[in-house]
Design a protein around this nucleic acid. Structure first.
Lengths: 358, 358
DNA sequence: CCTTAAATTGTTATCGATATCATCTTGCCG
DNA sequence: CGGCAAGATGATATCGATAACAATTTAAGG
């Protein structure tokens, strides 16, 4: 049945292809396995000629390095774990791109996980990641389960929290104050003459950045003496485009004289604008609407959406850079907070003097 | 400087925390390491009482299983690799969600990689993944570099190609014909009376699904005797919303009497519609526009966009399911093709009798 | 009470690469 | 021409878990 000449490996499962090891490549070339191992790394000292011969053999045999064996021995897994709330959100994908770029040519790979905005799922993912022994871990936000925190601290690897400024950071932080950013947007719009402010966000505190934006809104509206903001909570975060549309309908039913509505994200703002348009209301003439995050859609749609631009890419890039620093200096740098920028982007959706939209 | 009482491990890097191993947990409980290992797995036979004691110790000590050691020994890495073109595309994120769901409770994790629509990047990623010895791999599309194909075949693990029907499949396929789907859309719109068809897509064949859609369009327009389609290529795939807007401008400059424009994806269709709206053209009265993919935005925006709905989630779910089958049956099932569904979704953006849009 | 099967636990070798130290060449210089 | 440093390569132990098999305990049945 099977080729009887092959050396029989007792632990080989039936039907499984014979796996190639470094030792076999070494034998083929006529060197030791150690030399093959060295040839795979740039820095190690192997004569150029030997390296070439080894690489030719690797090619000819189709050998692929086995990192799981290597990382056990070297005690370096060669990857960084990063957890983001959602796979399908251009803000977070920009952050992920920043991380990937920063890890370029460091020999470290990025391993992404998606928490779906849930601290429990985050805990599970943290454990799953730690089981593979990452050399560092980047998290979104500062809210974690107690067990997750314990595991992170115990792991003894650098931890970077991003996108917020946690009160009680685990280690390093790269982010900005979501509540301050939202406050800035409120103040900017108030300075344009808007007085009756509404707010649309999700129903729970699951999305901590969303909660922070909401409290920044509420606080600032009151500080400006504009009374309590008109708040509508709709849907479990992350609130969808469709929910943005439903939310603005109930908001306007309840407070028909609202002048401007801020939304927890551009996506809900877009949904709100489309729903208004569909119902024959003009944005911004009848109602002004702003978002948060400066997603691509906001500069494309009609009317274009006023929003807060966040340095998503920079967050990722700097988070990874801080992590690398810590790894290189032997985590002597200690804890620090890196602030990233944000800015108000005024566009048509809140432009009081703008040409009336179609 | 260091605690001199600690047993000195010669291979421990300075400053690194003392790592906990299974053996230490075992000693703490008073059993062998093997028993601890068994306690971590559901099926293994350990008395309930011992398992409980072990798990308490694990909790107390804060031990986290080391999979990199385990997978070396068991020759099972415990993960499936999946490569998708883009991190930030709801079609692919739905597919990824389908995979994740299908892998629930199988003990297998999904490891995602992003190829950025590039076969070279795909090759790099395939190698990076194979170095960690995945138990299976799921790819998007059927176009790979020669070296990538060699590595995949040689790896001896199940391979599933998705989202297309490659002419020369490596192993298993879960997908649909992009050209047939686009052809269906053309025929549907032609049956509604549209005659002068335009098409907007990217400039290169990098996005193979895009190319297939384009050829399906071209072929069908000619089959229907509607002359050659009016094709505009704009931007490197994946074509953005903004490029969709730019593309429709040049298309209408060149062929002002075009009646309906099909776009390679909903995103470019959305950009095109917004640009038309901004220029004072009514969609669909002045020009009808359709997309592909049925993204969330298409059912929200105004006017809502006619499109092809693809079973993205099902592609992921079935791809993972096929992979699991193959793993369980010992890859005896061999190669097969699983077709997934798609359907035309007619909406306002091509509705000839619809109320004129605002 | 004895026998045998089932359940539980332990022992040892091993997965495949790499750290570490030893060995062997070269080449250079006085 | 000897001595020594730098460069290249090899031998061996090891990373931390698990497979395979051995040993032990418990349960069941007559």
């Amino acid at each position: 049945m099977k080729n009887e000449d092959e050396p029989k490996d007792k632990r080989l499962k039936p039907g499984e292809a014979q796996k190639l090891t470094m030792a076999e490549v070494a034998k083929y070339v006529g060197v030791s396995a150690m030399t093959v191992s060295r040839a795979f790394r740039q820095d190690a000292s192997v004569s150029e000629e030997t390296r070439k011969r080894i690489m030719e053999a690797v090619d000819a045999l189709g050998y692929v390095l086995d990192l799981s064996a290597g990382s056990l021995s070297s005690r370096r897994s060669g990857f960084i774990a990063a957890l983001v709330p959602s796979i399908n959100n251009s803000n977070f994908s920009d952050t992920a791109r920043g991380m990937t770029d920063a890890l370029q040519n460091t020999g470290l790979q990025l391993l992404l996980g998606y928490t779906d905005y849930s601290a429990e799922k985050e805990e599970e993912l943290i454990e799953a990641m730690l089981r593979r022994r990452p050399e560092g871990i980047i998290l979104t936000g500062g809210t974690h389960t107690a067990r997750a925190r314990r595991m992170l601290v115990k792991a003894g690897i650098p931890v970077v929290e991003t996108w917020e400024l946690p009160e009680n950071p685990i280690n390093q932080v790269v982010g900005f104050s979501n509540s301050e950013a939202m406050a800035l947007l409120v103040r900017t719009l108030a300075s344009q003459g808007y007085r009756k402010f509404g707010y649309i966000g999700g129903t729970t505190a699951r999305d901590t950045r969303g909660s922070q934006r909401r409290s920044g809104f509420q606080r600032t509206v009151e500080e400006l003496g504009l009374g309590p903001g008109r708040m509508i909570s709709f849907g479990v975060p992350p609130i969808t485009m469709e929910q943005g549309g439903q939310a603005i309908v109930s908001l306007l039913e309840r407070w028909p004289d609202t002048e401007v509505v801020l939304c927890v994200s551009d996506l809900s703002a877009f949904g709100a604008i489309m729903e208004c348009t569909r119902r024959g209301m003009k944005v911004p003439k009848d109602i002004a609407i702003a978002g948060f995050g400066d997603y691509e859609i906001s500069s494309i749609c009609h009317p274009r959406i006023t929003t807060i631009n966040v340095d998503c890419y920079g967050i990722g890039r700097q988070a990874a850079a801080r992590l690398l620093d810590t790894l290189h200096t032997g985590e002597a740098t200690g804890d620090e907070i890196t602030l990233t920028g944000y800015k108000v982007v005024l566009r048509e959706s809140t432009d009081r003097n703008g040409a009336p939209t179609v």
